[in-house]
């Protein structure tokens, strides 16, 4: 494999530096989650880290939340979860479907156009989310639109486009025109050449894009906060009312539960798209 990037043997300072920095990166990413996961198994309500006794009691509480739902609350956790899943699915599929042809077109067209478009599609990332949330709400209200679930899905699609496009583009970069030309010279129509040759080669980038879209939409809070209604609400909104009130171990257990759901979704998408554990 790519021996040159990370030498398997020898490599001296280079290998050491790469591994050292990667370890720091992993620690920064995962330490808070590890701590929170450990705390969620704490037996007592007030305890310092690390806890001295462990139990599953907070997880039982989470299970109860899902089973004995209080019907008087507008935001039933089950409904919110389903809405979140549906929105995330729509956002994932739509954003990826629109980004694949765009990434292809950008990679195959001239540089100026490409840079301009990349910038345009980075914009959703640059906007402060609070401002965006309120702008979307003001527009939706002034147009008097009855959008249902799309109230949330449309802004989400805009938010994930930069991520999906970047990932598709970076995958497109490595695919040379010759491969396509070869397919065409063998008798494939240009669209077929794209679909049968280029898209499979982009798979890694597409997959990364899909996963980003899924995760970002499923966990988006700020814009959703402005757009949700009493009838269409998502899991992060529901979760918010819990975390604001207290960071008790049940909340932590619920967070761990949400992580598990996310990981499950990520692995599922990976399995479905990539086939036999090919990537990610």
């Amino acid at each position: 494999m790519r021996v040159g990037l990370l030498p398997t043997e020898g490599g001296g300072t280079y290998r050491f530096a790469i591994l050292f920095l990667a370890t720091i990166g992993i620690l920064i990413s995962s330490l808070p989650v590890i701590v929170v996961t450990i705390m969620s198994f704490s037996a007592s309500e007030y305890s310092s880290f690390p806890p001295t006794e462990f139990s599953f009691r907070w997880y039982l509480e989470v299970v109860q939340l899902f089973t004995n739902e209080d019907p008087s609350s507008a935001q039933s956790v089950v409904d919110s979860t389903l809405t979140s899943l549906l929105v995330a699915f729509l956002v994932m599929v739509i954003s990826t479907l629109v980004c694949i042809p765009l990434a292809y077109a950008l990679a195959r067209s001239n540089r100026n156009l490409r840079e301009g478009m990349e910038l345009l599609f980075t914009l959703p990332l640059v906007f402060p989310l609070v401002m965006l949330g309120i702008a979307f709400l003001l527009i939706a209200e002034s147009l008097q639109l009855e959008l249902g679930i799309w109230r949330i899905a449309i802004p989400h699609i805009a938010l994930v486009l930069p991520f999906v496009l970047r990932n598709c583009l970076s995958a497109m970069n490595g695919i040379s025109v010759e491969i396509e030309e070869a397919a065409i010279s063998l008798g494939a129509s240009p669209p077929r050449a794209i679909w049968d040759v280029v898209v499979p080669l982009m798979k890694a980038g597409i997959l990364a894009g899909l996963i980003f879209a899924l995760i970002i939409s499923f966990n988006e809070f700020t814009v959703t906060f402005f757009m949700y209604t009493i009838d269409v609400s998502t899991l992060p909104i529901w979760m918010y009312s819990r975390t604001v009130s207290s960071l008790d171990p049940a909340t932590l257990a619920l967070s761990v539960f949400i992580i598990v759901v996310d990981v499950f979704l990520v692995v599922l998408v990976d399995k479905l798209i990539a086939g036999r554990g090919n990537l990610f």
Partner: peptide
């Protein structure tokens, strides 16, 4: 009667949202 409750936000967030939705109140 059935009370449907929405428990989200602080006062200022509620005001921002209600203002933005103008006349069309959900509550």
């Amino acid at each position: 009667a059935k009370v449907i409750a929405d428990r989200t936000g602080s006062t200022s967030e509620m005001v921002a949202k209600l203002r933005a939705s103008g006349g069309k109140a959900q509550y």
